[in-house]
Design a protein around this nucleic acid. Structure first.
Lengths: 262, 262
DNA sequence: CGAATTGTTGATTCCCCTCAAACTGGGTGG
DNA sequence: CCACCCAGTTTGAGGGGAATCAACAATTCG
């Protein structure tokens, strides 16, 4: 007997399915070498020894450009590639049978998308560009062949998947046991850290996603997101102007999301 | 620059740390062979070719018995093994800095635990036996060495990790966009399917976890869980007596958790 | 320029949490 | 053997936080 998804409490529905099966790599002319990439220390090759990175170059994978709103893949699409963000920002979308959607993640430069497709050979989520963007499309079977044979590379791959699990853990904690203010604070702090890690200002940045998308991600309504931003502004923790964010009091924000010593 | 957990909105805290570092395999005398195991079709070897399963036997990993309430590992413990449930039921527990805990999963025979430890070499969650139980303790580095060299086996491992990601997706949908009745219905249906897959009655079973643990898992309070059970009973969907559950109207339950065509 | 999208804010509603009390079954020790 | 306690469960009453409904401002876009 074979179980397909042994412990999933909710069935995520392949919707839109394969009709969106675009030619997955639009610009095969642009070949990419990890070893020269300015993102190599925060992307797929992170943690690999130099000779292994050189072996990655052998994959000769292509890039793909997307415009704001374009779908990279949809839930139900055949899984062939994992994608690494080069530029731009993406959201991942889950869909329930009744059409309810939920954002399950935001992805920026160096982060991988599509690892959930390994399980069943079909993408479990959709990926949508929030602004003009470019990705590397890494053919999974080839990657798999390459990494088998090197326990080190295999470990790096396993670590990347495990990180995704850990990331979702923390989102589950957020959704399961935090109130609105804590959720928004955690979201902003996380964003701030990721901006900083990429060399941008951790205290002042531009949101690439709408209030509705933030709300969907955080399990609350867009009005509540807006109100919470306003509340933080009144508490002199933030300055908010539409999508422009300035974090005035980072420590105050951190207190806001770990409030009770309990 | 190296990022440790690139996109985690909330930091899960290693708590209790290494003081619980028991000798990880209590009974090394009991060696286990996957190829003879009655769980081989729903456990780690699922999807592997026969010769590969035979290679798994070479790992000669040990078992470990636990009593109800025993901790298999804690958040922060060094990651050495992944564990496969042989008998009994477990819960996984996440913990926040302020001490808030949340159940992130229930695990029954054939299911794997501990994959979240691959990311940082430390377990991100704790695993606790809900009843007397037995697990296989599979040394991860050895497993990794074994599977590198076989793209097939590596693929099986990757699939297992990806499944965990997909499972958490569905839990995120549940936590982010379902009401109390939908959550409990989804929980029961999922449990029912897993019982069925293991040869038990899908319509009548015994809950191994308390109302509080169910509530923690589903992001609600124990009283609400209890009330929802009572409500389902009044709607003639269930018969509930403490932890004994009989599903009277499965289709009704399914409707209860996908109610609105929207 | 009108239409559509996005964001803010207010008023009201409601679902679930909180607090509290009572009941159950099981284990323990006098 | 029974009284006692304790952890787990059920149920009720009341309150609060976020959802819902609605109006309006600011931008963007065709």
């Amino acid at each position: 007997m074979t179980l397909d998804t042994p412990t999933a409490p909710v069935r995520i529905v392949p919707r839109g399915a394969s009709l969106s099966a675009l030619p997955p790599v639009a610009t095969p002319a642009l070949k990419t070498l990890c070893s020269n990439c300015h993102l190599r220390d925060i992307c797929l090759p992170c943690g690999m020894a130099h000779p292994d990175v050189a072996r990655l170059d052998g994959l000769q994978f292509g890039r793909r450009k997307l415009k704001a709103g374009d779908e990279l893949y949809r839930g139900g699409d055949r899984f062939q590639f994992i994608y690494a963000v080069r530029t731009g920002t993406f959201k991942s979308n889950l869909m329930l049978a009744d059409g309810r959607e939920q954002v399950s993640g935001f992805h920026m430069a160096g982060e991988l998308m599509g690892l959930d497709g390994v399980a069943n050979g079909r993408h479990a989520s959709a990926a949508v560009a929030l602004e003009d963007a470019e990705v590397c499309a890494i053919p999974y079977v080839h990657l798999n062949e390459l990494t088998s044979g090197s326990a080190d590379m295999q470990m790096v791959m396993a670590r990347l998947m495990s990180r995704e699990i850990v990331r979702e853990h923390s989102l589950m904690m957020l959704l399961g046991s935090m109130n609105a203010e804590e959720r928004v604070a955690a979201f902003l702090i996380n964003l701030s850290q990721r901006m900083k890690a990429r060399g941008y200002s951790p205290s002042e940045f531009h949101l690439r996603m709408s209030r509705a998308e933030i709300g969907s991600y955080l399990g609350m309504k867009l009005e509540t997101v807006s109100r919470t931003f306003s509340a933080f502004q009144q508490q002199r923790l933030l300055e908010v102007d539409k999508r422009h964010i300035r974090i005035v009091d980072l420590e105050g924000l951190q207190r806001a999301f770990e409030p009770s010593v309990h």
